[in-house]
């Protein structure tokens, strides 16, 4: 028992030393928020507080992203945070209602510089194996012989049917994601560390779009997704647009849509500095370290 605790503490120490060495500042942001996430497929855990005074709904953060971006927009410089995050309605053997997240932002980095930095961090933590990189389109063409960026919704449905996959989706990105999960991800298990980058623009989330692609990456350790990085959107109008679309989609799926996060928009009066950020699942990372 104590051995396992010591091992985990040492790893956290190494992570902190890595950032300290590069002058990235550790921060703590609030776990309990007045606004839930609008992400279409992530649900905040909600609670009622101040029942004896003036009852109010609050939400546990699903990621420290927006709170950290408030700091970035107000001149924090490079920052990182290690915290517990909470998600409702999680299911699957690798998913839990609570897990530990490492989130960090580097000013002036693009996703390739950030991937290099993440590789460096992972090598410090003991992942010294060869690193593989595929663009999203390369991965699809290599492992499934599909031209993902040039296949429209109907074409993809036809291909999915031939693989006995469900095709009953409202939006093309949901089908892209299912096909990636079923046709590509299993093949990534052969690579100890594999980056997938340049996602289709439909899957941009909060990443910068350039033509057909969005500047995002994910890192897989032997087929298990452990990190998700973006070249971050900078302007409040871009965030307003993404959140409005997410809310619209939640509404269409019969999920709760939420009031606008005016506080966040207020704090982004000054745009974010150009930066790239990444979220890393620390529990998954630690469980993979046990296997190397």
């Amino acid at each position: 028992m104590r051995q396992a605790l010591i091992k985990k503490a040492k790893l956290l120490e190494k992570i902190r030393a890595f950032f300290d060495h590069q002058n990235v500042l550790e921060v703590q942001t609030s776990y309990l928020l007045t606004h839930p996430t609008t992400d279409v497929y992530i649900d905040s855990i909600s609670m009622q507080v101040n029942k004896d005074i003036a009852i109010q709904s609050k939400y546990l953060h699903t990621s420290p992203e927006l709170e950290m971006k408030k700091l970035l927009a107000n001149g924090s410089g490079d920052i990182y945070q290690i915290c517990q995050v909470f998600r409702d309605n999680e299911q699957g053997s690798e998913n839990f209602n609570e897990f530990t997240m490492l989130e960090y932002y580097r000013l002036g980095f693009d996703i390739h510089q950030l991937m290099d930095d993440v590789s460096h961090l992972f090598s410090v933590l003991g992942f010294t194996q060869e690193i593989t990189k595929f663009s999203y389109a390369q991965a699809f063409s290599t492992f499934a012989n599909i031209d993902i960026l040039n296949s429209d919704f109907n074409a993809l449905k036809k291909i999915a049917k031939s693989h006995d996959l469900c095709t009953d989706f409202e939006w093309i990105e949901d089908l892209q994601i299912l096909m990636f999960t079923d046709l590509v991800e299993p093949k990534l298990a052969q690579y100890p560390l594999c980056f997938i980058y340049d996602y289709p623009s439909e899957q941009s989330a909060l990443a910068r779009i350039e033509g057909r692609i969005s500047h995002r990456f994910e890192l897989y350790l032997s087929g298990i997704e452990v990190a998700n990085g973006y070249d971050e959107l900078q302007y409040v109008s871009e965030y307003q647009q993404v959140f409005a679309q997410e809310n619209q989609r939640r509404f269409e799926l019969g999920k709760t849509a939420f009031a606008q996060n005016l506080d966040f928009f207020q704090q982004l009066q000054n745009p974010l500095p150009q930066c790239a950020g990444v979220a890393i699942g620390v529990d998954r990372l630690f469980s993979q370290i046990d296997q190397i």
Partner: peptide, 25 residues
Amino acid sequence: EIRKPGKGQASNKVKFKDLITGKTL
């Protein structure tokens, strides 16, 4: 098997035995 990507909808991968033909699908 339930899969939940970081971004995106959860999906289920299900193995069945066809009780008429006996085949697995």
